[in-house]
Write a protein that binds this DNA or RNA. Structure first.
Length: 565
RNA sequence: GUCCCAGUAGCUCAGCAGGAUAGAGCAACAGCCUUCUAAGCUGUGGGUCGCAGGUUCGAAUCCUGCCUGGGACGCCA
């Protein structure tokens, strides 16, 4: 989506430069000056200087004199830069009107043309606690889905549950050896985790446990009754716990088909690979050789005949393509698995499936503890549910202290607590590793979710008190200089959404919403919005526009915006 | 050993489709609530942009090498 003012400037320059540069090139070169004294849009003349063999300063000067347009209040040469100053009052009125007309659709655009995008996300492992790492996948995937939807795609959120694999063999062994039915029934995940940890402690002394685990997993794959029953039980109880968390986060899925769903779809993959003569034997296992692509081989079948992660993901990719006819298929999975996805895509390409080009690994950094990866095996995990509950508690305390008379206190506390946790996860680029810090997650001041929510609540309160019905057709005349940075931010929103969808990067939206809130809070601090009857309407129109964009921005992150807090 | 990611203020990070004087938040210090929600605002201090070369009129941004940290690298997912 192009900014219309930038486009306009580019068109004018195109003429002024005697069409020596493509209009599109000019558009790309136009920048937004950091300093207000440098105007609203700027064009550096260096490139043209080379082309014309003329001093850039001179070109800037000559062009400045040649331009005369009602949209520009001033055109100025400053060194080699051509700076233009927009007619702020007119632009402000246009921008606000635009937002008031489009409301929550402001910034929506059709990039996707209705194309389906599957998103493999969340995917917690059965019988293990829902960790901070799964939170990342859940929250990032959800936000990307919302951003995709806003830009004309049809997202399909798939919770690819980790409900299959050798670890269930290990777990069954551990349960049969040291487990206690009553204890597990009472406190499923905690007990199962403990069994898992015990298994790994004992395996050091008794390596044959590994083999036993593998055997039990094989029995599971062969539909052995005892194995299946234990597995089903573990699965159901675990799901109950996960659903409590999804409920808190306000996140739903379009599909809960986990790894086990693909059990009967694995043979087909193996046959397909055989039919294409891609399968070779190596050290007793069946692999796809990828040495031509300078990658290690992709393991398809273990020496005991059992399938692997890659086999399952191949089956899932085929199933998803055939079921959803996706144009893109995203995998929101930690960056330590990047090799796996490179191999996955490569194997599909070798099978002749060019649609695999639409598959993307949306990687994210790890949650570190003392600078190191957290390990489930040692039982060192932080329980997400407890963190969220604590955040909600804190929000509650704040409400009691600052604004105890509002309606729906519990609902608001939940929104703000969850908002803090989600925002904390999304505000930085997803590929950064993050050191786990409860203190940071619970923070509500500065660049946080609650800060943005608070700003929105302030705006809402003004609109309530202003009592003026906002009539879209009434002329808007903003005379405050302080309003301009706010307008300038509002103007950016569509471009931010576009960049966010193209780079699968919710943090752009999170940063944007902070910038807008900051700009608005400055305005709020400097201008009494409800005092001057003459200007009240125009100012409230700005406030309304801000509240619409803040709310929509937060929504794209999966965070709600209460009217009071 | 090979490959991937990161290194910017005391801390957490933006900026990296090259552009003007490198920005936020936190922490520290100093102010602002009888007036629209102080979860806020204003101000001060704080920088060899890991190091060394190269490309360019111009490099935190692009290229190469090195250093440091993290991760991945066949029967886990």
């Amino acid at each position: 989506m192009k900014m219309e003012y930038k486009q306009h400037f580019a068109a004018i320059l195109y003429g002024a430069f005697d069409q020596q540069l493509e209009e599109e090139t000019i558009y790309q070169m136009i920048e937004k000056p950091k300093l207000m004294s440098h105007g609203d849009l700027a064009f550096p003349c260096f490139a043209l200087a080379k082309l014309r063999r003329k001093a850039p300063q001179k070109i800037a000067e000559e062009t400045a004199n040649a331009i005369d347009d009602p949209l520009f209040v001033k055109v100025e040469a400053d060194g080699a830069y051509l700076n233009v100053f927009l007619n702020k009052q007119q632009v402000a009125a246009d921008v606000i009107k635009n937002v008031l007309n489009e409301r929550e659709n402001y910034g929506s655009q059709n990039i996707g043309n209705g194309g389906v995008v599957t998103i493999d996300m969340s995917s917690p492992n059965i019988a293990k606690p829902f960790s901070m790492g799964h939170l990342r996948s859940t929250v990032i995937g959800n936000s990307i889905a919302l951003i995709l939807e806003k830009t004309g795609y049809k997202p399909v959120k798939i919770n690819h549950l980790g409900d299959w694999g050798t670890q269930f063999g290990k777990l069954i062994v551990a349960y049969k050896k040291w487990g206690n039915e009553e204890k597990v029934r009472k406190n499923t995940i905690k007990e199962l985790l403990q069994l898992y940890v015990t298994f790994h402690e004992k395996v050091d002394q008794n390596p044959s446990l590994e083999d036993e685990g593998r055997q039990w997993f094989k029995r599971l794959e062969d539909q052995d009754t005892e194995a299946m029953e234990l597995w089903k039980w573990f699965r159901e109880e675990s799901l109950k716990e996960f659903n409590r968390i999804y409920e808190l986060l306000g996140i739903t899925f379009d599909s809960n088909q986990g790894e086990a769903f693909y059990n009967d779809k694995m043979d087909r993959v193996v046959h397909l690979l055989e039919g294409n003569e891609l399968l070779t034997e190596s050290e007793g296992a069946q692999v796809v050789d990828l040495s031509d692509d300078e990658m290690p081989p992709c393991l398809i079948r273990k020496s005991d005949g059992a399938t692997l992660y890659a086999t399952r993901d191949l089956a899932a990719a085929l199933y998803r393509k055939e079921t959803y006819h996706f144009v893109q298929s995203l995998y929101v999975v930690g960056n330590e698995q990047s090799l796996h996805f490179q191999q996955l895509i490569k194997v599909l390409k070798k099978l002749g499936y060019d649609w695999a080009d639409g598959m993307h690994h949306i990687s994210f950094g790890m949650i570190l503890k003392d600078g190191k990866k957290m390990s489930t095996r040692k039982g060192k995990v932080v329980l997400l549910e407890e963190v969220i509950q604590e955040a909600i508690e804190l929000a509650n305390t704040n409400i009691e202290q600052k604004n105890p008379n509002i309606e729906d206190k519990n609902k608001v506390a939940k929104s703000v607590g969850v908002g803090a946790v989600i925002f904390h996860d999304l505000k930085n680029h997803r590929n950064n590793d993050v050191e786990f810090s409860l203190e940071d997650m619970l923070r509500v001041e500065g660049a946080t979710g609650p800060y943005v929510q608070y700003t929105h609540a302030r705006a809402s309160s003004l609109l309530d008190k202003g009592l003026t019905k906002i009539n879209v057709n009434q002329p808007i005349l903003l005379q405050d200089d302080e309003a301009w940075p706010v307008i300038s931010e509002i103007m950016m929103f569509p471009e931010i959404v576009e960049r966010a969808v193209k780079s699968y990067d919710p943090s752009l939206v999170a940063k944007y919403v902070i910038d807008l809130a900051q700009a608005f809070n400055k305005y709020y601090g400097n201008v009494r919005i409800l005092e001057d009857e003459q200007q009240k309407f125009s100012r409230l129109a700005l406030v309304k526009a801000v509240s619409v964009v803040l709310k929509e921005g937060l929504r794209l992150l999966g965070i709600s915006a209460p009217k009071e807090m």
